[in-house]
């Protein structure tokens, strides 16, 4: 465990917990894409199939349980909680899961480290994670008005991506057999998707104005 990996995990954890806490406290999910949240729940469910078969560390197991629990809680709040679901921008959040899930599944069947159920699902989760933010970015574009917490949520996710890339670079040079092409390429694609958002986020922060995305 290096400092970049830890910082990446912590910003990832914070992004999910900030969102869950926001929804729980103000009983609103305005500006949050349910499609993206459902895709993340699917990402964690398919990636952590090894949770009971491969023990890595107590840290690893606990983090997996927190990610699974918090992502499914967010989906539950947005779909089932009678106050929260009323604030959901259903008409604006029109991205189809199918268009992201199917190509990722096909890609995972072709490109994986080993053709086993667990490895195909692992690859699928990496590909899906790379693009799962798209419905959220589309929703941000449409609603224009981005409150601080939604902005912070996407910012923390972007920070997590950046730290993970530093972690891979660090591990590449410090661990002799550390080569994971699938992880790196899908991770890089995911980070690039945030670059555009970051540009506007930093501009609004620098000029101390409310975040607005262009049409």
């Amino acid at each position: 465990m290096n400092i970049f990996r830890l910082a990446g995990d912590m910003t990832h954890l914070m992004s999910v917990l900030v969102l869950l806490l926001k929804i729980h406290t103000i009983k609103s999910c305005a500006g949050i894409s349910l499609k993206t949240q459902e895709l993340y729940a699917l990402v964690f469910a398919t990636r952590y199939l090894d949770i009971f078969t491969d023990f890595i560390s107590v840290y690893n197991t606990i983090m997996k349980l927190i990610f699974l629990g918090s992502s499914f809680s967010i989906v539950w709040y947005m779909r089932r909680h009678k106050l929260v679901r009323r604030s959901y921008d259903k008409e604006q959040d029109t991205f189809r899961h199918f268009f992201l899930v199917l190509p990722c599944l096909l890609l995972a069947l072709v490109m994986n480290e080993k053709f086993t159920f667990k490895e195909v699902m692992w690859a699928f989760s990496l590909y899906l994670e790379a693009v799962a933010i798209l419905p959220q970015l589309v929703l941000l574009q449409r609603t224009k008005n981005i409150d601080n917490l939604t902005g912070q949520y996407v910012f923390l996710l972007g920070a997590y991506r950046a730290f993970y890339i530093f972690n891979w670079i660090y591990r590449y040079f410090t661990e002799p057999h550390y080569v994971h092409w699938i992880t790196w390429i899908s991770g890089l694609v995911q980070t690039l998707l945030y670059a555009d958002f970051f540009y506007y986020y930093f501009n609004s922060w620098k000029n101390n104005v409310k975040l607005h995305l262009p049409a």
Partner: peptide, 10 residues
């Protein structure tokens, strides 16, 4: 590290 690859990242 072992030869059997395990995914140790989240």
């Amino acid at each position: 590290s072992s030869t059997e690859k395990v995914h140790d990242e989240l």
